[in-house]
Amino acid sequence: MARGLRLSSELIAGVLVGAVLGWGFDRLLSTSPFGFIVFFLLGFAAGVLNVVRSAGIAPDRSRQ
């Protein structure tokens, strides 16, 4: 359970930050909803990156 919570929190955090950034981007430049979509996807990518890193599959730069 601990591991699952850890990995899911990584993914959720990535997606959430992406979504917030996209929303802010849209608010500032009134590009809604494209900013949100793009950043949401990027956030998903970042979340996957986080998960992969914290699962120890990909080399983690910050641990070296």
Partner: peptide
Amino acid sequence: IEIISFFS
């Protein structure tokens, strides 16, 4: 992506 990862 790295920046989003950092802010997450």
